[in-house]
């Protein structure tokens, strides 16, 4: 039943992406009201809970707590959004080891990730009105994982690159408070000032899913031939590209704009991916609570 649910869910999301793609873009001459294009620089700090399992070395899930930092450059208008993001995350992971009735074993691992993301979205008029703005488009998402687990000895270093061409859909709901509102809390009567606010939901679904995973026996060339090479070459010797697996990413974001044009937001980011590779698969998910500051840099 779980398997059926999984496929239904994926079909539903892929179906949504492909059907909405046929809606077509809004042409510039459709604009009847001037709405500005804003450029923002975004800086984010997140608390994250990565979970992964690398079948090449262990059947166990590794789960942990860490931080994630992101820097983004966003160009947004009513009709179109473009964003380029660089991300970096680091966390401490522990294996989910079954309970022992003798001496408990445990495995500690360090995990780091580097991520590049570029996305373009266009408005779908049919799904938008004064309060709602729906955009669809695509993105390129590439993640490089670096894992270290000393208990695995010669396999201490775990690496994979997961790169995807993704279909994207974003729905933004204007939840602005148009006038001041006073709350009656018995002793306190705070006044909530009028503010522009958005509630935004972004969905990314992998369409072309590439991954770069170890060869059959997870061996590094340099340990075989004794040649010291640069770290990247050393790390990826014998790795192979595969086109398989899937990737999902969602972000629910609450944005509050300030009077100077800047903004800040809280968001919950969930991501899951599998990279079967050619031989043994890799699975990963993460839950993240993210705080972002939007610095407006240009309006036209």
């Amino acid at each position: 039943m779980k398997k059926l649910n999984k496929y239904l869910l994926i079909l539903l999301m892929v179906g949504l992406s492909s059907t909405t793609f046929t809606q077509g873009r809004v042409q510039p001459f459709d604009i009847i009201e001037y709405k500005p294009t804003n450029n923002y620089t975004l800086l984010s700090f997140g608390l994250t809970n990565p979970i992964y399992r690398d079948f090449a070395t262990s059947p166990l899930f590794y789960s942990g707590i860490g931080i994630e930092l992101n820097a983004s450059w966003l160009k947004t208008s009513d009709l179109r959004d473009r964003i380029f993001n660089l991300g970096f995350g680091i966390s401490a992971q522990n294996a989910r080891v079954p309970q022992s009735n003798f001496i408990q074993s445990g495995s500690f691992a360090g995990y780091g990730k580097f991520e590049i993301f570029y996305q373009e979205l266009w408005k779908i008029d049919a799904l938008s009105d004064n309060k709602n703005n729906t955009k669809i488009g695509g993105a390129i998402l590439s993640t490089q994982n670096v894992r270290a687990n000393p208990a695995l000895q010669n396999n201490t270093m775990g690496l994979e690159n997961i790169s995807n061409l993704v279909a994207s859909a974003q729905w933004t709901r204007d939840i602005s408070r148009t006038k001041d509102k006073t709350l009656d809390l018995w002793l306190f009567k705070p006044t909530l000032k009028a503010a522009k606010r958005d509630l935004r939901f972004l969905l990314n679904v992998g369409v072309l899913n590439f991954n770069y995973r170890p060869g059959y026996a997870y061996a590094y060339d340099s340990e075989i031939n004794g040649v010291e090479t640069n770290p990247v070459e050393w790390s990826f010797a014998n790795y192979k590209w595969s086109l398989n697996g899937w990737r999902l990413k969602t972000q629910l974001e609450y944005v509050k704009y300030l009077s100077n044009g800047n903004a800040r937001s809280w968001s919950y980011v969930w991501e899951a991916t599998t990279a079967p590779g050619k031989f043994e698969g890799f699975q990963m998910a993460s839950h993240q609570l993210r705080y972002t500051i939007y610095f407006i840099t240009k309006t036209r």
Binding site: P59, P98, S100, S105, Q153, N154, I224
Partner: peptide
């Protein structure tokens, strides 16, 4: 070349 791994019970 010896390569490492982990069992379902956490031993390596």
């Amino acid at each position: 070349l010896p390569n490492g791994g982990q069992l379902p019970n956490g031993w390596t």
